[in-house]
Amino acid sequence: MSTVIQIAYLVASVLFIIGIKYLGKTKDARRGNILSAVGMLIAIVATMLTIEVVTFLEIFICILIGSVIGLYYATKVPMTKIPEMVALFNGFGGLASFAVGLSDYFLKSSTSLESLDAVNLTSIILSVLIGGVTFTGSMIAYLKLDGKVSGQPITFSGQHLLNLVLLIAFIAASVFVFLDPTNLTLILILVVISLLLGILTVIPIGGADMPVVISLLNSYSGMAACATGFILNNNVLIVAGSLVGASGIILTQIMCKAMNRSLTNVLLGGFGQTVATG
């Protein structure tokens, strides 16, 4: 990759760092957001320089569709519905990382199997897992906040056990993927489990805990982008992704503290509430 692009990525990373810093201060917050948007633009333009001219039209159409949808919802949504919007956008980001991971897997498994090494497979599996959980989790959060699904915690007996079993099944399937990287059934199993896990971890959470969950899912979407960075060997993805991943965790903790709850308490959802009242 050329030096110019690497330098552009470096500049973008610095702008993201300053942007996040400013976003935490009342008088600089708007400037911080604009700085990080400029960083994003620089990263996008730099990446476009590496792209073959033939694909420009398709890319242009995709970006146009995405921008119209994004701008429409961002400007039309009533201010009271903003948390729902954040959850929705966050879910889209997670699904994008999930799709990039799968895209890379399908390319390498059909063209250059030898490049599908341990690091690559691990990154792809993580990007599918975290991206998938972020996507379905954010969608459930969106539906709950929007009132399309009951905002109350939905719990059933053996819920935590089921999550644990699914997680173990995911790890087991991942091990088999290492042994047989071209087995599509295994990849499908990974996809289904990660999507299920997102739903199952968010349905038991409800009411006032929802903003905390959205903040946590936001952190996850950063980690998913970071995993994608490892697949593509791309620094700006790793920097931006891990910044969001780490700062998102801290913000989640701050929000929990403000509500006088612990993070485990929130994550265990309905279970945590019975403990709190009893």
Partner: peptide, 21 residues
Amino acid sequence: LMSGSNAISGITIVGALIACN
């Protein structure tokens, strides 16, 4: 802050661009 950092996590757009190409 949550919303702003959520936009930054959209950096996966760089990955998507590379994937398109």
